[in-house]
Amino acid sequence: MKRRDFIRNSAGLGVLSGALLSMGRFGDLMAAENYAMQLPYDFVAIKGGEAAAMFDKGIASLGGMKQFVKANQTVVIKPNIGWDSAPERAANTNPQLVGRIVEQCKMAGAKTVYVFDNTCAEESRCYKLSGIEEAVKKAGGTMVSGRSQSYYQDVTLPRGKKLKNARVHELILESDVFINVPTLKNHGGAALSVCMKNMMGIVWDREYWHGNDLHQCIADFAAYRKPDLNVVDAFRVLKRNGPRGVSVADVVTMKYQLIGKDMVALDTASAKVFGIEPAKVKHIGLAEQLGAGSSNIEAMKVNRITMGA
């Protein structure tokens, strides 16, 4: 072998490199005022349409998104993105719905719309497989991480019976508008997961809740922080094996949606949609006792909209 051959041969190794970065968006930190609005209905119930279309109808009947989001405000949306499963499995909030809410917020003049969840499965997989990350980015929203404890700040819950302290995601504390977008589903421990149960995803130390009377903790937290708007996604409903589900066989397409400010009322109505006695979902009654809202939906002004055929 010639010397130069040796050199040529020994140098025959490839070079590889990779670095991927995607840039986010800039924006200032400014707060605007939040108006207290008189809504035409206590809540709206829509059925029979696609998730995004039902939201458009429902929010329009409440006076439009401008009732809740003012120009230049920051909005944080908290869907259920707890699991790394596809929308068909109904463990997470419908991605089309989340995308449309982001769009509506942007159209109402929101400066930034943040979306996050403190997921149960690994976060990037949940964000991706749920379809929510893609939908939010397409709509001009910002996906934010909830995976590090450093994002959460200590708060005290003076009215809490069991839950006196919690660590809450900083965006919930800093944003002007907080929109809670749960998906209606069965829950092995809490019986049902709707608005109030979804709030567990904005806190860090939820294990404490499980270990210290889950229903009371859910109620305690509901009394601490009321979202500015709740949108219950019941387009696809996980009827059993919740909150994660095992397969699509656990899912029923119900094509429902509920929109309103009162979590207790929406959870009560959701229980009825699901087909379970609201009294069996203990945190509904406990939250009502703490003044978090009312379960007396018969006395409420409800707009019922039926779409399609």
Partner: peptide
């Protein structure tokens, strides 16, 4: 032990080998 609801184990179980 506490006579309160939990279900955290079943909640995370992917196969429902743990169910409530």
């Amino acid at each position: 032990t506490d006579n309160t609801a939990c279900g955290s184990c079943s909640e995370h179980c992917p196969t429902q080998a743990v169910r409530m």
